[in-house]
Design a protein around this nucleic acid. Structure first.
Lengths: 152, 152
DNA sequence: ATCCTTGCAAAGCATTTGCAGTCAC
DNA sequence: GTGACTGCAAATGCTTTGCAAGGAT
């Protein structure tokens, strides 16, 4: 299933940075834009391989970095091993379950005024972005002991 | 230079979780609690080795994880390779320079009401903490091109 | 005396890289 | 046709692990 809009968007983003449109990049982007599971590079590889049997893991890594470079995806770094990628570009932030590791999308965004308040405490620093993540437990992972205090 | 308070704090934290006080753990904690450079495991290793010549990198890794487990340190994960550790437990968040990779402390915290607002959008999720990081450029790393839009 | 911790070296993963062949433009 | 991209395999870098010797309680 080829998503015309998705492909076109990718083609434009690539062209404007002097890069080429390829089937591999298209397949990676199509998958990433259509899922909300925040897959790892390996998960993308496995998913995309059902369409493009010959694609290699190295190419998936390269494609993902290309997408990030074009602003079509965001890379999320977590403690538990591999990085995850997010191809949904609507404003939202993330909640990560400390038990199962899943990452859930939370719609909405931190308001600009909130960011300004936070940035104001950082003189000598030109803020261009932020990354906010809530941590806790999803309903399927009920903790037994008490809860730890909130800490960044 | 042995910080009595720091050592005592560590000894208590270790005892309450059934672990032992060792010179290696003490050296790692003393260094971590006394710096604000958010060192990598390797940087801790190099710094601590001037006191404890025989300490190994593996032990540093193990000690750091022990401290995190005791709640005496926080592990920060970034894209650029190695994890960094923060032994300052007063409320603050971080600003990371996209050019040089340095991590600066920003004093203060997101207010409880702000966190509640953010958490409220996440039903089915028991929030116990958050992680906020600003990204941008420190004064010594002035970017040449335009700035990217704010995005999590 | 017990059993946790250390140090060493080797193993384990995620990710990157070099390069020849291939493809988009 | 040219230069960018792919696929492969090897390399890299961070972190973890197994195990015998040593150390804290």
């Amino acid at each position: 299933m080829h998503d015309q809009n998705t492909d076109l968007q990718l083609r434009r983003a690539l062209q404007s940075s002097g890069q080429r449109f390829t089937e591999q990049r298209a397949a990676v982007y199509r998958y990433l834009a259509g899922t909300d599971i925040h897959p790892t590079a390996d998960e993308v590889f496995l998913a995309v391989r059902s369409d493009l049997h010959e694609i290699s893991l190295a190419t998936v890594y390269k494609s993902l970095e290309t997408l990030v470079g074009c602003g079509l995806a965001v890379k999320l770094n977590y403690s538990g091993g591999s990085a995850r990628y997010d191809g949904r570009m609507d404003p939202h932030y993330h909640a990560r379950c400390l038990a199962c590791g899943r990452v859930a999308d939370i719609p909405g965004e931190v308001t600009d005024s909130e960011i300004h308040t936070l940035s104001g405490r950082a003189p000598d620093f030109q803020v261009i972005g932020y990354s906010l993540e809530l941590t806790g437990y999803c309903t399927t992972c009920v903790p037994e002991g008490g809860l730890s205090p909130i800490r960044a």
